[in-house]
Amino acid sequence: MTIRKVHILFIILLMFAGNGFVLGQKKKNSDKNLREAEFYFTEGEKYYILEDYAKALVLFQKSLDTGPDNATVYFKIGQIYSQSSELDKALTNAKKAVDLDDKNKYFYVLLADIYTQMGNFPEAAKVYEDLVSKIEKTEIYLFELAALYLYQQRYDDALSTYNRIEDSYGVSEEISFQKQKIYLQLNQPDKALAEGDKLISTFPGEEGYVLKQAEILIHNKQDAQAKKYLNEYLTENPDGYQSRMVLAELKRRNDDYPGALEDLKVIFKNPDYNPDNKVQLLAEYRSELTAEQLLQFATPLAEILVDVHPEVADAHIIYGDLLQQANKPEQSVKNYKAAI
Rank of each mutant, 00 (worst) to 15 (best):
G170K: 09
A56K: 03
L142N: 11
P122Y: 01
S85Y: 15
G119P: 03
Y128E: 04
E129W: 04
Q153A: 13
L87N: 06
S133E: 12
E136V: 07
S168L: 08
T92C: 02
Q83K: 12
A158M: 05
E86T: 04
S160W: 08
A56M: 01
D65M: 15
Y155P: 08
D102Q: 10
F107E: 03
E174C: 04
T202K: 15
L186E: 13
E174T: 12
D69E: 15
K181Y: 11
V132H: 03
L193P: 05
E166Q: 14
S85H: 14
K137E: 12
F107A: 00
E174H: 10
L91S: 02
V73H: 01
T72P: 11
P189M: 09
Q152T: 12
V109T: 09
T202Q: 15
Y183F: 14
K105E: 10
L64Q: 13
I182G: 13
Y115N: 01
S172C: 08
D101W: 05
A97T: 09
A192S: 13
N93E: 02
K95C: 01
K55T: 09
D88A: 05
L110N: 01
D190R: 12
L199M: 11
Y169K: 14
D156G: 10
F75I: 03
I175D: 10
D99G: 05
K76I: 02
D101Y: 05
K55M: 11
A158C: 07
F75K: 12
T161V: 13
V58Y: 15
E174G: 08
L110A: 00
D167I: 12
S201P: 10
Y108W: 10
K134Q: 11
S160E: 13
I165W: 01
G170L: 10
G196D: 09
I80W: 11
Q185K: 10
G119L: 06
F107V: 00
T138C: 05
Q79G: 00
K105G: 00
G78T: 08
L148A: 00
T161E: 12
S176K: 15
S176M: 13
N120W: 01
F143M: 07
L186C: 08
E139G: 08
S63Q: 06
